[in-house]
Amino acid sequence: MEKAREFLQLDKEAAQSVSRLTGSIRPPRVGFEFGFYNDFAVRGIRIDRVEPGFVSCSFRVPARLTDKSGNLATGAIANLVDEVGGSSVHILGTMKVSVDMSISFLGTAKLDDELEIRSKVLGQKGSYCGTIVLIRNKATGELIAEGRHSLFGNQSSKL
């Protein structure tokens, strides 16, 4: 137990980062549309193009989503795959939930890199839908990540 406690202990720099977060994040309130998730994870995604089954977005890597090495954190990449992949399905008029994601991390994105994120619906069978999400560095064209995202939602009853 002591080793686990030691491992989870924050160094001075990390503790300062956490203390800056607590003042800037507002709790969700009735009638207030933004909460922690919107303020922290999805703020800054800009929609460039939307078509049935296709979404293209831009995103500049913010400091709040980088790891200790200054790279866009893998969890932030997974979140982008989930959000943008789910958006391309939602545009088809159905709300679904994520059931599976697989992500190939092929490169790194640094602080302030401009990313291009494209999602396309690969197919749909009944209530099951699959998407592909590509995340590229806009300036260099380097592929940062490729995500496959599966979603499922209730279909209407046949009764």
Rank of each mutant, 00 (worst) to 15 (best):
S17T: 15
S17G: 15
V18F: 15
S19E: 15
S19D: 15
R20D: 15
T22E: 14
G23H: 05
G23E: 02
S24A: 08
S24K: 15
R26C: 12
R26I: 10
P27M: 14
P27I: 10
R29A: 11
R29N: 09
R29V: 14
V30A: 10
G31Q: 12
F32C: 11
F32S: 13
E33A: 14
F34L: 06
F34G: 00
G35M: 06
G35C: 07
Y37Q: 05
Y37E: 10
N38M: 02
N38L: 03
D39K: 03
A41Q: 03
V42D: 04
R43V: 07
R43K: 06
R43I: 03
G44E: 06
R46D: 08
D48I: 06
R49H: 06
R49K: 08
V50L: 05
V50Q: 00
V50W: 08
G53H: 00
F54Q: 02
F54W: 00
C57P: 04
C57W: 06
C57V: 01
F59K: 13
R60Y: 07
V61I: 12
V61T: 08
P62T: 09
A63I: 09
A63W: 07
L65H: 05
T66Q: 12
D67H: 15
K68S: 13
S69D: 15
G70F: 03
N71D: 10
N71K: 10
N71W: 11
A73Q: 14
T74Y: 13
T74N: 13
A76G: 04
A76I: 02
A76D: 06
A78T: 03
N79A: 13
N79S: 09
N79W: 06
N79K: 01
L80W: 00
V81T: 01
V81W: 05
D82R: 08
D82T: 04
E83N: 07
E83G: 05
E83R: 05
V84G: 00
V84R: 02
G85M: 04
S87F: 08
S87L: 14
V89P: 03
H90I: 01
H90K: 13
I91A: 09
I91P: 07
I91C: 11
G93C: 07
G93V: 09
G93A: 08
M95W: 09
M95G: 12
K96H: 02
V97D: 08
V97A: 15
V97Q: 09
V99M: 11
D100I: 01
M101E: 04
S102K: 10
S102D: 00
I103E: 07
I103D: 04
S104E: 07
S104D: 10
F105I: 03
F105R: 02
F105A: 02
L106H: 07
L106I: 10
G107F: 07
G107P: 00
G107T: 06
T108I: 10
T108A: 14
K110G: 11
L111A: 11
L111D: 13
D112P: 05
D113V: 11
E114F: 00
E114V: 09
E116R: 06
I117H: 01
R118A: 07
V121F: 05
L122F: 08
G123A: 13
K125N: 15
K125V: 15
G126E: 12
Y128C: 03
Y128N: 04
C129P: 05
C129H: 10
G130Y: 08
G130V: 12
T131I: 02
I132T: 08
V133F: 11
V133M: 14
L134P: 03
I135T: 00
N137F: 12
N137L: 05
N137P: 04
A145F: 00
G147L: 08
R148P: 01
